[in-house]
Amino acid sequence: MVPFLDIREQNRRIEKELRAAVDQVIDNAQFILGPGTKSFEEAFAAYCGTKYCVGVNNGTSALHMALIANGIGPGDEVITTAHTWISTSWAISYVGATPKYVDIDPQTYNLDPSLVESVITPRTKAILPVHLYGQACELKSLSSICDSHNLRLIEDAAQAHGAKCDGKRVGSIGHIGCFSFYPGKNLGAFGEAGAVVTDDQEMAERIRRLRDHAQDGRHNHVELGFNTRMEGIQGAVLEVKLRHLDAWNEARRRLADYYRENLANVSGLRLPQCVDPQGHVWHLFVVLVDAARRDEIRQELADQGIATGVHYPTPVPLQPVYQHLGHKPGDFPVAEDVMAQCISLPMFPEWEESQARQVVDAVKMVVSNK
C-alpha cells in the first residue's frame, strides 16, 4: 500500500527531537502559549521574513483574526477564489462580510488576477488569495490591484509553508499571512494549530489580545475576544519540525519531478503546471482525468494499493451554505472543470523510489488502458 501521506514515518525519523521538546513542555507545565509557543513564533517569523508571528489554535482562526485586525466587518466584501477549502470563506462570513468569488487560472488553479477588478465595488475591502496546493499566487498583480483600490491583501498560505513568490516567502508579501499547521500540512502539528505573520506591529499586538479573550492586562477585556490560543506542546513540536521543513519541501519537489517526468506522456492525464520550480512546495500533486471516469480511476488505483484524494469536489460558492449568494453551475467554469476532474496522488517527503514507481505504473495502466 502506498499511503496518501505518511505522518507516522515522518515523526519516527525525528522522534528523539520531538520527545525532548514535548518533555520540556511537560516539565515546565505551561501548556497554553508559554515558552514553547513564543519560541516557535520567533523562529517562524524569522523563517517567513516577517517581524511578527502570532500563534493561534488553527488555520481558520488565523484567517478570522487576520480579517478582524485588518478592519473587515459587516457590510464589507472580500474577493477570494472559488476553488479552495471552505475555511477561507468561513473567516469572511465570521466577521459579517460577504465573499466575492472569482474563477481560477487554468494553469496554476490559483485565483485569476485578471478577473479581480471586474468584481470590485465600493464595499470591497480586501483580496484574500489562496496559495493552493503549495504554489504561490501571482501576488505582483494582486498587490498592484490592492494599491490602486486601497484594498488589504491577506494571504491564505495554509498549503504553502516555505513557498516563494519572486524570491520572498509567501505570507510576507501581503499585509498579513495566515497559516494552518493541521497534521497533514507541509509543516504539521500534533493536532490543530495555526499562525499569522506580519510586519505590522499594531496588527500583531491586536491579534495577541484577540486570541486571549481580548485582554489588555489580566482581567481587562477591551473588545469582543476569543479563545484561540496556541498550545505550548504544538509550538514546541512545530519548532522542531520547522528545522526540517526546507529538506522536506525539497524531497516533495523531487517526487513531483519524478511524477512529471514519468507520467508526461500518459494519454488522458493532465499534469500540474509549475510556474517556479524552486518556489513550489508541492503540498499536493493534483492531476486531471476524465470527469466521467474519476471515481472509477480512484477505485482501481485503490485496488492496486494506491491511496488518492480529491481536493476539492465542489466550488465553495456552489456549496449549500452559500446558496443565498445566488451563484449557479457555470458561473466558475474553470474551477468547476478542474474540480470535476482532479485527483491528488500520494505526496509526502518520506517517499521511497519503489513507492513512486508503484504509483506511476498503476496510473499508467489505469488511466491509459481504457
Results as ranks from 00 to 15, higher is better:
29 A>E: 14
92 I>M: 06
100 K>W: 00
31 F>S: 11
68 I>M: 14
67 L>G: 04
31 F>P: 05
23 D>P: 00
76 D>R: 09
65 M>V: 09
31 F>N: 10
64 H>K: 06
84 T>Y: 05
23 D>Q: 02
36 G>D: 12
37 T>W: 00
38 K>C: 03
102 V>W: 06
34 G>H: 03
22 V>K: 01
68 I>Q: 09
53 C>Q: 06
78 V>F: 05
80 T>V: 03
52 Y>W: 15
90 W>N: 10
98 T>I: 15
78 V>Q: 02
29 A>C: 12
86 I>M: 12
46 A>Y: 03
94 Y>H: 13
82 A>S: 14
107 Q>P: 01
73 G>F: 00
106 P>W: 01
105 D>A: 06
61 S>T: 11
99 P>V: 10
82 A>M: 03
76 D>A: 13
22 V>G: 02
25 V>K: 01
81 T>E: 11
108 T>A: 10
108 T>Y: 08
88 T>E: 06
74 P>D: 06
62 A>Y: 06
31 F>G: 06
32 I>H: 00
74 P>F: 02
64 H>Q: 05
70 N>M: 10
59 G>R: 08
97 A>M: 14
32 I>N: 00
107 Q>I: 08
33 L>C: 10
87 S>Q: 12
28 N>A: 02
99 P>R: 11
26 I>V: 11
40 F>C: 07
65 M>D: 08
41 E>A: 03
60 T>P: 00
62 A>K: 04
59 G>S: 11
52 Y>E: 12
52 Y>N: 11
64 H>V: 01
26 I>P: 01
96 G>F: 11
24 Q>M: 04
72 I>M: 04
84 T>S: 13
61 S>E: 08
66 A>L: 13
103 D>P: 02
94 Y>W: 15
85 W>P: 00
28 N>K: 05
73 G>T: 01
104 I>G: 02
87 S>M: 14
60 T>C: 10
91 A>D: 04
100 K>V: 15
56 V>D: 07
90 W>K: 08
35 P>E: 15
35 P>N: 12
107 Q>D: 15
84 T>I: 05
96 G>D: 10
86 I>F: 13
86 I>D: 12
28 N>T: 05
78 V>R: 07
54 V>T: 10
66 A>I: 11
95 V>K: 07
81 T>W: 11
89 S>V: 12
95 V>L: 13
35 P>T: 12
102 V>S: 06
29 A>F: 14
108 T>Q: 08
65 M>F: 14
48 C>V: 15
35 P>H: 13
93 S>A: 15
102 V>P: 02
38 K>H: 10
107 Q>E: 15
71 G>R: 06
63 L>Q: 03
56 V>C: 15
61 S>Q: 13
72 I>L: 08
106 P>K: 06
58 N>R: 03
29 A>K: 15
31 F>H: 14
105 D>P: 01
44 F>E: 00
65 M>N: 08
50 T>M: 09
82 A>H: 03
98 T>S: 09
90 W>L: 12
66 A>Q: 12
84 T>Q: 09
34 G>F: 02
33 L>K: 08
86 I>N: 09
101 Y>W: 04
34 G>N: 06
104 I>N: 02
37 T>A: 15
96 G>W: 09
36 G>I: 11
75 G>H: 14
59 G>L: 12
36 G>R: 06
68 I>L: 15
36 G>V: 09
83 H>V: 05
51 K>T: 13
28 N>Q: 05
82 A>V: 08
23 D>I: 00
78 V>E: 04
55 G>A: 14
48 C>E: 05
29 A>N: 14
105 D>Y: 01
106 P>H: 02
